[in-house]
Design a binder for these strands. Structure first.
Length: 351
DNA sequence: AATGCGTGGCT
DNA sequence: TAGCCAAGCAT
């Protein structure tokens, strides 16, 4: 409890004033926590403000369409968060009478809510004594106690959760959890932590043993997948051809352009050879290069994209593929990956 | 248990 | 600059 009291003292002096900290509304806390998963505060903030304005209650959220949600989520990444939120909002409407649950045991059953988020909502809203363990807490605990168990293993997760559970202050779970997270974010940062002005400088194992830069330990790393896309711009009478992406791959459920993917670098000439364009066009195929290769780096993929303008596309073929025409002025109404809407924005001077 | 899922900032 | 990391979760 000494640790917790010291930590909370630090928190009261140093905490940021963030909008989701001025409420005990479980719905708004849920909204903020989902948005902030793997996402920096500065990046998530405008989305939180827009969503809380547009959907002030879980009832409003549940009444939205998936297209509405994906459009508002556009540019934030990890789009399944948005789809899962809609599913959960509907469950709360139907099974919880529209009252957002606050008990950890209820929350953990909902889609999109895992151990961290269930602990965050239950502690922040009603002070339930469940310890949050996120990236900040892993780092703080690994350094303070000198634990070198890799944080991304089952053993590590279990070990760190147990320590966090022992450390929590049951009388003030909300502030304790907030303080753990905020301390990791502001003081015990991944790079260049502010050890010189740290209240735990004398008791921190990592600082005393000069292992601050070695902790926490994380096993790595995944192979990067290289992908090469051609995206096609078919434009006719103020309209452009778009499609919805499937549910399997990256950017599931979002909209993009008709496209062809290669597993290796492929020239525009080679595209003609490799691709049987016979069904695509009703007249002579016309293809103009529009962009140079665009390199788009994701966490586990490197995407190389080229945009080409095509003419004389076959209307029947587009229909069979589920492609459809939309007014160019309306294209921003369809949720798209960053790569696509940035290109269209520049191409049409839209948005 | 291991993998897939976005985008952006930092070094 | 190429890699790491950010208020994780689902499968």
């Amino acid at each position: 409890m000494i640790f917790s009291n010291e930590l909370i003292n630090w928190y009261r002096i140093n905490k940021r004033d963030l909008p989701w900290r001025n409420t005990t509304d479980a719905y708004l806390i849920w909204l903020s926590e989902i948005i902030l998963q793997q996402t920096r505060v500065e990046q998530g903030m405008p989305y939180f403000l827009r969503f809380s304005e547009q959907y002030p209650t879980v009832k409003n959220f549940a009444a939205a369409s998936e297209d509405d949600i994906l459009r508002m989520w556009q540019g934030l990444g990890y789009y399944s968060r948005g789809r899962n939120m809609l599913k959960t909002a509907k469950v709360i409407e139907q099974s919880f009478n529209g009252i957002f649950p606050t008990a950890y045991a209820d929350l953990i059953k909902l889609t999109g809510i895992g151990e961290y988020t269930a602990a965050a909502i239950s502690s922040f809203s009603v002070n339930e004594a469940k310890a949050v363990v996120d990236g900040n807490v892993y780092r703080l605990l690994a350094r303070y106690f000198g634990i070198d168990t890799p944080i991304n293993t089952g053993k590590g997760k279990k070990q760190f959760q147990e320590i966090a559970d022992e450390l929590i202050n049951p009388a003030n779970a909300a502030e304790h959890n907030q303080a753990m997270i905020e301390f990791g974010a502001l003081q015990c940062k991944p790079k260049n932590p502010n050890c010189e002005q740290c209240p735990f400088i004398t008791s921190c194992f990592a600082y005393q043993h000069k292992k601050v830069n070695e902790l926490p330990v994380k096993l790595k790393k995944l192979k990067i997948r290289e992908r090469y896309f051609y995206f096609f711009l078919a434009i006719k009478e103020g309209q452009i051809l778009i499609k919805r992406r499937g549910n399997e791959d990256i950017w599931a459920g979002l909209h993009d352009l008709p496209s062809i993917e290669f597993i290796e670098q492929t020239s525009l000439d080679q595209l003609f050879v490799d691709q049987n364009f016979q069904d695509w066009f009703s007249g002579d195929p016309i293809i103009h290069s529009v962009s140079d290769q665009i390199k788009h780096i994701l966490t586990h993929q490197r995407i190389y994209a080229r945009f080409v303008h095509i003419e004389h596309i076959n209307p029947e073929f587009t229909q069979e593929n589920g492609w459809f025409w939309v007014n160019i002025d309306d294209v921003s109404q369809f949720g798209q990956p960053k790569l696509i809407f940035e290109f269209l924005k520049n191409f049409f001077k839209l948005y």
